[in-house]
Design a protein around this nucleic acid. Structure first.
Length: 469
DNA sequence: CGAGGAGCGA
DNA sequence: ACGTCGCTCCTCGA
């Protein structure tokens, strides 16, 4: 495998000629050309930015595993280039139908709103909406923002029971979002010849070393409500010979936390294949039969406590009083006492060294841990606590992607990896290669020999829509 | 064109 | 003041 800087030297010329996305105008979308040229250009871009970023790190003190990380990113570079060439097929006909359906609903919601206020105004303008709600209708304000009072979802949800107009605005806004950001943007970025979506993966732009995706961003396709699921079902396989396979890391962050903190209760729960949210719920709510509502609350607690959230923040999340939320947080640390100890020691070390490290010794320098301003200090602490978890999770899936790509390529399988969404991989699975499902699950779960084993869930369908968890 | 408000995902 | 990050949309004023 060539080193990243070798790739960079070889491809530098391309990256300077085709900065950013300008190159798309030069691409002839006939198949041969795409495979050879575009691959070079995309790799070049990534190599260029990756090299720049590593050059920065090089100027810092060297640290043990730099070569390992460097090697991983270099290998991933090629994997991403291949993924971008595979593209995701879209059912554009259905997408256009959805656009029309949404448009009709939006029009009727608009009429309802204009009727209620006896006036036409621009619903897309928060400024105009503020005037209508807070001056014309005299609705009490709830949340201050820089300029005046907020009309965001949180504010509207607070008043919708007393003022029905709020719920209409909420629905209207949600549908506009789907229509413009997703349906229209997907149709715009769709390649008309191949009916496929070409996203660009950025390997090195995110400060967290997560990947990002743009033109279009395929990492924030909505899910949950009816229209959102309809949009997801428009992501289809490129031919009837292929299925869409989704492989999803289950609770990856809390499993990573278990392994970093070595908390015995947490480790045991995972080793015994217990449901971790129920485990927490049993402790929070006194060991009786756990209702689904209690499990849901415990899930939120598990999820947020690893982000070092305040009692105030947690209370807003689950709609309880701050004092009660504070009790949940204390309880969490009582049960998983090593997690608390681990976080405290991590912060002590971070203050001494000025940095924190991930499982793979990626390093993050953190400045404001001793800032006199509490707000800034807390933010730095959250960053310090978060980073080893989030970044380790990002590395886990990167390593898995490299191995899976190797598997698919050495045996010349027809199945392809087409997308990464942080803890989820999407494949086109060829009909004669269904056995790859097990192999891929095996790779993903064992790519890092954690004590609390990683768990991967897999779905296979005709499209990207999947059952709600 | 950029800031600000808003909202989607992980 | 009280998860983080990234991408995209729209408006509005310079």
């Amino acid at each position: 495998m060539p080193k990243l800087y070798d790739i960079k030297l070889k491809e530098y010329i391309f990256s300077t000629r085709f900065k950013n996305n300008d190159f798309k105008d030069f691409i002839d979308f006939s198949d041969d050309f795409v495979v050879s040229e575009q691959s070079d250009i995309l790799s070049a871009e990534k190599a260029f930015f990756a090299w720049e970023k590593y050059a920065q790190i090089d100027s810092e003190k060297p640290f043990p595993s730099q070569e390992f990380i460097f090697d991983m990113e270099a290998k991933l570079l090629m994997v991403l280039a291949r993924m971008e060439l595979n593209w995701f097929k879209i059912d554009s006909g259905r997408l256009k139908e959805i656009w029309v359906e949404i448009e009709e609903r939006i029009k009727s919601l608009e009429m309802e709103i204009y009727d209620l206020v006896w006036e036409k105004f621009n619903l897309n303008s928060p400024k105009q909406l503020q005037v209508i709600l807070f001056e014309k209708l005299n609705i009490p304000t709830t949340k201050k923002i820089k300029t005046w009072f907020s009309v965001d979802n949180e504010a509207l949800e607070y008043i919708w029971q007393k003022y029905p107009i709020a719920s209409i605005i909420l629905e209207h806004r949600g549908l506009r979002k789907l229509q413009t950001t997703y349906v229209e943007w997907l149709l715009k970025t769709l390649n008309p010849n191949t009916k496929k979506i070409h996203t660009t993966f950025n390997q090195t732009w995110a400060s967290t070393w997560r990947m990002s995706s743009e033109n279009p961003n395929l990492q924030n396709i909505p899910a949950g409500n009816w229209y959102a699921e309809e949009i997801k079902s428009c992501f289809i396989s490129s031919s009837p010979d292929y299925k869409i396979m989704v492989a999803d890391y289950s609770q990856v962050e809390i499993r990573v936390l278990a392994n970093l903190s070595q908390d015995p209760i947490l480790l045991d729960a995972f080793k015994a294949w217990e449901d971790i949210h129920t485990r927490t719920a049993k402790f929070l709510f006194w060991d009786k039969e756990i209702t689904s509502e209690e499990r849901r609350r415990a899930k939120t607690v598990n999820f947020w406590v690893i982000y070092w959230i305040s009692g105030f923040g947690l209370s807003k999340q689950i709609g309880i009083w701050p004092a009660e939320a504070g009790i949940y947080i204390d309880k969490f640390y009582e049960l998983y006492s090593w997690v608390k100890k681990y976080n405290e020691e991590l912060l002590v070390k971070a203050r001494e060294n000025g940095y924190v490290e991930t499982f793979f010794w990626r390093r993050r320098y953190i400045n404001n841990l001793n800032d006199a301003n509490r707000i800034i200090k807390w933010q730095a602490e959250r960053e310090a606590v978060n980073m080893p978890i989030q970044w380790t999770a990002a590395d886990v899936i990167k390593l898995a992607m490299i191995q899976i790509d190797k598997l698919l390529n050495t045996w010349n399988y027809k199945s392809k990896m087409i997308l990464q969404v942080h803890d989820e991989l999407v494949f086109e699975l060829y009909k004669d290669e269904l056995f790859l499902e097990e192999k891929i699950k095996e790779i993903m779960e064992n790519v890092v020999p954690f004590e609390a084993k990683l768990l991967v869930e897999i779905w296979v369908w005709d499209n990207w829509k999947k059952a709600k968890k």
